[in-house]
């Protein structure tokens, strides 16, 4: 369904009624029904199932048994960022370095993308990225500037709702964008730094002083600022719903049903071929081995004694 295939236009799926365009990741799921949508009774066609139903596979019906627990995109978007590189990391803490006194430093990586810029810090780009997977029921909430954060580990900027016990949740592919950004280490909140503006206004991209920049930004946003700064690691998860390649490129069984498959970090439920009980398997194999040894001894003894008799 990508540009090399069916080349769908956006509005094929992002249907709109009265300018309310379908398809966005907010605290309200874009759709809660995973079923065929006939234009006359349901104009919304945002879900894959709207056009394809929950049982779209004809050649291998086993695949249809998966659609209740696995989102279509999980199997149908094996990799993303096929043509253009996508930004995957952004480390603000290294921003503000100059060469020859006051000249900006700009570096490019092998993909031709900017990998360091004095104004932005280190940037990481990637092509043909493998998604990461999690349970998801269509609801995403965001961490806001007023929320207290736990800075002892990377902060999830988007909170992905759902888990394996929720029947609405399915395993869904995500792009994870990893950042390192300035925050209020005293109040333990994210901050709104002032980035652009004239010299002396506190704008980071002119004055390169985080203290001034955050103070000015927080003031403009009407937020508190303790005066204590730090850099915190953040993660921004975005469901992957586009760039469906031709069906031949879909995931194969082994991508999930193997010891080190794509879902190896999603634990707590059983996937055949991936999971097993180590105790049970060890006991089973050892018992069978013991039996082999036993019959071997019995047989050996039979041969020895029969030789002696003759």
């Amino acid at each position: 369904m990508d540009s090399k295939g069916l080349n769908f236009s956006c509005v094929k799926c992002h249907t709109s009624t009265e300018h309310e365009i379908e398809g966005r990741f907010y605290s309200m799921p874009a759709t809660t029904t995973h079923e065929l949508a006939m234009p006359k009774d349901n104009p919304s066609r945002i879900a894959c199932e709207s056009c394809h139903s929950m049982r779209p596979h004809k050649t291998d019906p086993k695949l249809n048994d998966h659609t209740a627990r696995i989102a279509c995109e999980t199997c149908h978007v094996p990799i993303f960022a096929l043509k253009k590189p996508t930004l995957v990391t952004w480390d603000w803490s290294t921003a503000g370095k100059f060469k020859e006194g006051h000249k900006y430093i700009v570096k490019k990586d092998e993909l031709g993308m900017v990998s360091y810029h004095t104004k932005k810090g280190d940037l990481g780009w990637a092509k043909n990225v493998t998604p990461e997977y999690d349970w998801f029921n269509g609801v995403i909430t965001h961490v806001e500037v007023t929320d207290t954060i736990d800075d002892s580990r990377p902060v999830r900027m988007t909170v992905i709702h759902g888990d394996q016990n929720d029947p609405q949740s399915r395993i869904t592919p995500f792009k994870i964008f990893r950042g390192k950004q300035i925050y209020d280490a005293g109040n333990k909140t994210l901050v709104v730094p002032k980035l652009f503006g004239p010299k002396g206004s506190g704008a980071y991209w002119n004055d390169f002083d985080w203290q001034e920049s955050v103070a000015a930004g927080q003031k403009a946003a009407g937020q508190q600022f303790s005066g204590e700064l730090g850099f915190v690691e953040t993660e921004y998860l975005r469901p992957v719903a586009h760039m469906i390649p031709p069906k031949e490129k879909s995931l194969s069984c082994e991508d999930c049903h193997s010891r080190n498959g794509r879902l190896k970090n999603l634990t707590g439920f059983y996937i055949p071929g991936r999971d097993y009980s180590a105790i049970l398997d060890r006991f089973g194999w050892l018992s069978c081995l013991a039996l082999l040894v036993l019959v071997g001894l019995h047989g050996g003894l039979r041969i020895m004694t029969s030789k002696r008799r003759n």
Binding site: Y270, S277, L280, G284, C288, V295
Partner: peptide
């Protein structure tokens, strides 16, 4: 039913069959 429960029981049965086969 937990798929794991079913799978473990099925595995136990398989080992029992293997043990039977050996003997």
């Amino acid at each position: 039913m937990e798929l794991s429960t079913v799978a473990y029981l099925h595995t136990i049965g398989s080992f029992a069959f293997l043990a039977f086969l050996i003997i």
